[in-house]
Amino acid sequence: MARYFEDTEVGDVYELDGRYEVTEAEVKEFAEKYDPQPFHLDEEAARDSIFGSLAASGWHTASMCMRLLVDGFLEPETSMGARGVDELRWKRPVHPGDTLRVEVEVLDKRESESRPEVGHVRMETRGYNQDDELVIRWEGLGMQRRREAGE
């Protein structure tokens, strides 16, 4: 059943079922294309870095967690995109072999003043590794469809 703006309550926490397994090949492929720093591309350089071993780009970590969010939480019927992201923080490095999961907490919501079909929802998205260590967090400024009168 679709989750509309009216179904979302401040304080709701959603622990998503999906998991994302981080592979060395994908870490290097992403880095090569978008963030070609040595500690994302080369094991030897990574060993000599503050990460101690090959580490995923923070942007890659955000992308993997976004995939989990799209697959397990955002609904095509009611998700209307986002106005932006606040307070993006990479808390721990993500390494090949890690398995990521995501949870979402509703922080605030308000009706749109200019578009009656839209509700604004501020949510904190948190990504964890297989040891339940926080690896990333951000506040998304999502837009969620409102129910039409009579629904």
Rank of each mutant, 00 (worst) to 15 (best):
Y20G: 01
Y20D: 14
E21R: 15
E21K: 15
E21G: 14
V22L: 09
V22K: 07
T23Q: 10
T23P: 03
E24D: 12
E24V: 00
A25M: 09
A25Q: 13
A25N: 12
A25I: 11
A25S: 13
E26R: 10
E26V: 11
E26A: 11
E26K: 13
E26H: 14
V27F: 04
V27A: 10
E29N: 14
E29L: 15
F30W: 14
F30M: 11
F30Q: 08
F30N: 01
A31W: 04
E32G: 14
E32P: 05
E32K: 15
K33A: 14
K33C: 10
Y34E: 05
D35I: 06
D35P: 01
D35A: 06
D35T: 03
P36F: 09
P38I: 09
P38T: 08
H40R: 03
H40N: 01
H40W: 09
H40P: 04
L41W: 02
D42R: 06
D42E: 09
D42I: 07
E43V: 12
E43K: 15
E44N: 02
E44G: 03
E44A: 11
E44S: 03
E44K: 06
A45P: 03
A45H: 04
A45F: 03
A45T: 04
A46Y: 01
R47W: 06
D48K: 13
S49L: 04
S49W: 06
S49Q: 00
I50D: 04
I50H: 11
I50S: 12
F51W: 07
F51K: 04
F51R: 05
F51Q: 07
F51G: 02
G52M: 07
G52Q: 10
G52F: 11
G52S: 06
G52N: 10
S53K: 12
L54G: 00
L54N: 03
L54Q: 10
L54V: 07
A55P: 05
A55K: 00
A56Q: 01
A56V: 07
S57P: 08
G58I: 09
G58S: 05
G58P: 05
G58F: 07
W59K: 03
W59Y: 12
W59M: 09
H60Q: 15
H60T: 11
H60L: 09
